[in-house]
């Protein structure tokens, strides 16, 4: 076989090779995204995602969507513009959550024995599914950023509420009131995470009383729109092929 001849000799063979490539690329993409996104999210979301006593109605709600919409936006750009595939956001969250669960189970529980009900990751799926859906239905970067980005921020807290609400039941402990999540943070000793570094319930949204979570979610959604634009362009730039010379082939 010369270099100019095709490696496949029939349409069936071509389809088979193409599918093999599909799985190879998808597999590789999944784990590359898992690694990169996981590190990014651990560095930027960090403790807010690690511990239940950091999952508050102000800062967790605000920070987590903003720092987690990054990779979904970039991977969406690559998969949409090059392949018209609308699962960039969800495939990112699948990778991230698999990595997070492996980390929480093997490291947090397996090595240091923090109970999993204290250190489970945040649920990012609802926002990611809607983000992908808006991209496909609109086919527009701007609409996806504005509608999808906003929805990504807005759906975060209600998407997690069924998981964290049981931990926000109050308890009286030695004369003080706290939530079960606070009590977890107090009981399960973290020598390197003293109470004062918890960034929870800080801010000036006091005029909204107890209904501060929706306001934080809206703010998070607005900033997510901006971050979506930024990272979408990163993804688009990385997905270009202009730096690959045709002479190489």
């Amino acid at each position: 076989m010369s270099a100019s001849q095709s490696a496949v000799r029939s349409r069936a063979e071509a389809v088979k090779v193409s599918r093999t490539f599909d799985w190879l690329i998808l597999f590789t993409l999944f784990f590359v995204v898992l690694g990169g996104y996981h590190i990014h999210y651990m560095l930027t979301g960090g403790d807010w995602d690690f511990w239940t006593d950091w999952k508050d109605r102000r800062l967790w709600v605000t920070v987590a969507p903003i720092v987690s919409i990054t990779f979904p936006a970039a991977v969406q750009a690559c998969l949409w513009y090059r392949y018209r595939l609308p699962f960039g956001a969800v495939v990112c969250i699948l990778g991230l959550l698999l990595g997070e669960w492996i980390n929480r189970y093997l490291n947090f529980w397996g090595w240091t024995y923090f109970p999993v009900n204290f250190c489970f990751p945040s649920n990012l799926f609802p926002g990611a599914i809607v983000l992908d859906a808006v991209l496909l239905l609109s086919g527009s970067l701007t609409v996806t950023a504005v509608v999808g980005g906003l929805a990504y921020g807005l759906l975060f807290y209600p998407g997690n509420w069924p998981i964290i609400a049981p931990l926000h039941v109050p308890v009286e402990y030695n004369g003080m009131m706290m939530t079960l999540a606070d009590l977890q943070g107090y009981h399960y000793v973290r020598t390197g995470t003293p109470e004062y570094i918890r960034m929870v319930e800080k801010g000036t949204l006091r005029t909204f009383g107890k209904d501060v979570a929706p306001v934080s979610a809206f703010f998070s959604g607005f900033v997510s729109i901006i971050i979506y634009f930024l990272w979408h362009f990163f993804g688009k730039w990385f997905a270009q092929t202009t730096f690959v010379s045709s002479e190489d082939f």
Binding site: R57, W161, P162, V169, P170, T179, E201, K202, K210
Partner: peptide, 15 residues
């Protein structure tokens, strides 16, 4: 909605 029905009393984290 079902979570709020099941846990009608919740409080914010204390700090």
């Amino acid at each position: 909605g079902s979570t709020n029905d099941k846990y009608p009393i919740t409080t914010p984290l204390q700090a």
